[in-house]
Design a protein around this nucleic acid. Structure first.
Lengths: 331, 331
DNA sequence: TTGAAAGCGCTACCAT
DNA sequence: ATGGTAGCGCTTTCAA
């Protein structure tokens, strides 16, 4: 069943059917009704491929992240997908994994599918190679980057000032008398680097040395975190607080400490990052930095629709994070 | 830049360009090279809309779930998306929320986008109305249902036998002397009903009465769970173990109990469901039923590709769950 | 208000 | 091995 069949059945031309389909006002009510009736009757659905061919858009956005099964990205994807749908856009999801090559392949795939825009969550990356790839993409379609910042035409960045958030964490801990702060991180993304730099800068500004052995890179694996902590302690290093770039890492540390019969926060306060659902899964619940995913993602989609509408849009928007105090640390 | 431009620049016909594009063997190596060179030079990308129009497929699958930000669905989506991409299919994601109407709207949207198939995660639903809608969809495209079972043509179900898994949980607790088992659940999906029925049936088969006040419906909200537990205890009801339809609920209960200075598992063993990442976030870590999302999702995608290839496929595949013993309960 | 017809850019069949 | 060409099903412009 195509538009010709509908036209024939309704006794009109395909142009008229098309007008009805697209809500043109230039159709007599009676004609419209007739056409609509045929459509309804036959259960006709316009062929979107043909439509897209003429219009050169399918109203679809590529949404790219390293791993949707990660609680943080999942949240972001959820919000973005919903917001986009609210604007009549569908989302093609690509959960790329960490390999640069795969990310690029996904972007190319999405580009080949002629998506109207790209939303990159939690990118960009440390590798310059990759950013150049984004530049190429951005030449063709608007590209929104969530929690990454780069200065490239047709690229729009919305991010949380995680540098400052982490900086403030350190200062807050210092004020409580915690001067040896274990720092756990797992990724060297833009966001990861920002946080680590905040940690370091705060030390400098406070006039304390950064103890490099207290900065540990781990995977999001509870056992691995426990082992890292144990090995640290065995080597005789001590720390009086834990800061992590992700809630999950903080929780790994927390459980390792609890296992050693240490009290949290009495012996060692802990602050996570992301303010994810995980914070309420521990006992005591985890104090964490809310980096505003929801706002970030909503803004990202709004920016995008503004771009589509040709409005002038800021290329960089930075929000502040916010410490959510729970059981593991209070200011 | 279109296929005509490429043809002209390469001094061949569009048919030849098309052949090169689609890897036809019937092109002289030299010709192929020439065309490829032009394509490379010009950075030409075939217009997928035109291609789709002719082929009547864009190699895209609609993936539908109630909430991608939920850790369980996120995992499933992640696996499905990756597996599909491995087969050259992209995923359009729809995180619908719980309202029946929205789910239907999403399915229709996806259908209008002419996806090649639909994968429904964690559906189907208790409402008969919805299932009839699925029937209509399945008339047009193959529909895979993960953790839901229905008997409809062109519909393929892969599910975990959660009835049995929960049944076994009850039996295992009984054997340990726990006869009053609090049951927490949050959703009346197919899966939710299966689990609850397993809980009830096990009681029956063991000759124990089901205490209806011990079956509590809650939302995935820690505070609400705590309140539900407290109110239960205040009313003088007691229980010697906790079973939950989802890890998160189990954890809510666990934290409420810890807050009351009860010991887990010494005073009260707890078993969650889904074997999610959350299990390792608590202390002690949560014993939980692995309902095989990964396998389920991989199978789902395999079933789909088999269907596409016209192979004959079982319409119902049921896997067994598996108890993963951690700190909160051991057999 | 309506219709005729020219694209949109590709695939695949039929010739050669 | 290559070319010509008829679709695929829509939108939109131009006429009437």
């Amino acid at each position: 069943m195509n538009i010709y069949d509908v036209a024939k059945a309704a006794g009109v031309s395909i142009a008229t059917v098309s007008r009805v389909l697209n809500g043109s006002p230039n159709v007599r009510a009676k004609t419209k009704e007739k056409v609509l009736h045929v459509i309804e009757e036959a259960g006709y659905t316009p062929n979107i491929f043909a439509r897209s061919l003429g219009l050169n858009t399918m109203k679809m956005i590529g949404v790219l992240c390293t791993d949707v099964s990660d609680i943080y990205y999942a949240k972001a994807v959820s919000i973005i997908e919903n917001a986009l749908r609210g604007y009549g856009y569908d989302s093609i999801l690509c959960s790329t994994g960490n390999k640069l090559e795969d990310k690029q392949k996904c972007m190319d795939l999405l580009l080949a599918k002629r998506v109207d825009a790209l939303i990159l969550i939690g990118s960009t990356f440390k590798e310059a190679a990759d950013n150049s790839h984004i530049e190429k993409i951005a030449e063709k379609i608007p590209t929104i980057i969530i929690n990454g910042v780069m200065d490239v035409p047709n690229t729009y960045c919305v991010a949380c000032d995680e540098f400052k958030a982490m900086y403030d964490n350190v200062v807050a801990l210092y004020k409580k008398g915690c001067h040896e702060i274990l720092y756990l991180y797992d990724a060297e993304t833009y966001s990861g680097t920002q946080k680590l730099n905040g940690y370091k800068q705060a030390h400098k500004d406070c006039g304390w040395p950064v103890a490099s052995e207290l900065i540990i890179k781990v995977n999001k694996n509870m056992q691995e975190i426990e082992e890292a902590l144990n090995s640290l302690l065995e080597k005789g290093h001590t720390f009086s607080a834990v800061l992590a770039s992700e809630d999950q890492l903080a929780i790994g540390a927390m459980n390792a400490l609890l296992k050693k019969n240490l009290k949290v926060p009495e012996d060692i306060p802990i602050i996570g990052f992301n303010n994810s659902m995980l914070c309420e899964c521990t006992y005591p619940p985890l104090t964490s930095v809310d980096n505003m995913v929801e706002t970030l993602c909503t803004m990202a989609v709004n920016v995008l629709t503004d771009v589509f509408e040709g409005k002038s849009v800021t290329h960089k928007m930075i929000l502040s994070g916010k410490l959510i105090e729970r059981g593991t640390f209070k200011i």
